[in-house]
């Protein structure tokens, strides 16, 4: 297990993102360490060779990402009968219909809150556990394994397990809450369902963050830690002023991953939690796309929604890279 963790992207000298960046170069004999200047100046015998190597990846991205995106943008301007017999160009009508709908805006608001809370709790709990596990000397392999294996659970299964914990009739968490006078009604009460969704989504994502934070922590040189220990007695302050800034690249990478997770990958959890019937329960924007497109067969409307979602992610990513990454120092 120890070797397993050490081999994760953030190897000793590098960080998660650096590890990813140099990944491709590594294949051509470049050194594994990020930031190694020699590795970045690999020369190819023919100028076309790199493109040849990139081609399979580009082909996959084109077929599975660009092509559907183009189609989505196209059909978002049409109103179409599900079986494809006729489609009418309606211009921006699908967009204005969606954006004028109070329901849609309510779902967007919930998605924002949901994403913020899931990202915050998944990151902070993951970091806390990583810091604590990093300090453990005896039996740390078993602690780490126990913390990591939740990650192996598929989202729908996580949703199912979570649903059992929150079941109206037999859920242990519901019984526990009843002791404290809180009658949790998942599927019936909006905020109770939201609470259960957030708990299960956070729980599912903690191990992932834990793995990255732990390897990030293990990548901080002992010399730096020792020097810091000599300068400052407060462990808490040392963490804030020395360890956390050194973890920043990992944290930034995880921030993006977690936001994407909360926006998109929680679909399985939500689907299982609302049991196929959203009713008055909270749902996220992605789930709404699914409901209108796949269950309601309204292709134009749901295409418009997915284009809106694409734009949100696009803006969010630009924002993250422009404003947050500036504050992150890679080595």
């Amino acid at each position: 297990m120890t070797t397993g963790t050490e081999r994760l992207p953030a190897t000793r000298g590098g960080t998660a993102t650096d590890g990813r960046r140099s990944g491709a170069l590594r294949l051509f004999g470049g050194k594994a360490k990020g930031g190694d200047e020699a590795a970045k100046r690999v020369q190819f015998s023919s100028p076309y060779l790199p493109y040849l190597f990139l081609a399979p990846q580009l082909a996959i991205i084109f077929v599975f990402f660009y092509w559907p995106s183009i189609q989505a943008i196209q059909s978002s301007f049409y109103l179409e009968d599900p079986f494809g017999f006729g489609s009418t160009f309606v211009g921006m009508a699908n967009y204005t219909d969606v954006l004028k709908s109070g329901e849609y805006l309510g779902i967007a608001r919930f998605t924002a809150i949901f994403t913020a809370l899931v990202t915050f709790f998944a990151l902070s709990i993951g970091l806390l556990l990583a810091v604590k596990a990093d300090g453990v000397i005896r039996g740390n392999a078993s602690y780490k394994t126990l913390l990591i294996w939740v990650y192996a659970i598929a989202p729908p299964v996580a949703g199912l397990i979570g649903m059992m914990f929150f079941d109206q009739h037999i859920g242990p968490i519901v019984e526990l809450a009843r002791w404290f006078g809180w009658d949790i009604k998942v599927g019936l009460n909006y905020s109770d369902t939201a609470f259960a969704m957030i708990v299960v989504s956070v729980w599912k994502q903690i191990p992932y963050n834990f793995i990255f934070f732990l390897s990030g922590l293990q990548g901080i040189p002992v010399a730096v830690r020792e020097a810091a220990a000599m300068d400052c007695r407060s462990g808490f302050r040392r963490f804030w002023t020395v360890i956390l800034p050194l973890l920043a690249p990992t944290a930034f990478f995880l921030l993006i991953i977690n936001v994407t997770y909360a926006l998109f990958d929680t679909f399985g959890v939500i689907d299982v939690m609302v049991k196929d019937k959203a009713a008055n329960n909270p749902i996220t924007l992605v789930y709404k796309v699914y409901m209108d497109g796949f269950r309601g067969n309204d292709l134009g409307g749901s295409s418009a929604q997915s284009v809106i979602l694409m734009l949100i992610v696009f803006v969010l990513t630009i924002f993250q890279f422009r404003f947050i990454e500036r504050r992150v120092h890679y080595n």
Binding site: E103, L188, N189, Y190, K277, A278, A279, N280, N281, M291, D292, R295, G296, N297, D298
Partner: peptide, 21 residues
């Protein structure tokens, strides 16, 4: 037409009736 979606609207509103919203 679009009746599955109309049912979803009903389900949503009925849930709201019984949760007092």
């Amino acid at each position: 037409g679009f009746y599955p979606q109309i049912r979803e609207i009903m389900e949503r509103e009925y849930g709201r009736i019984f949760s007092g919203e």
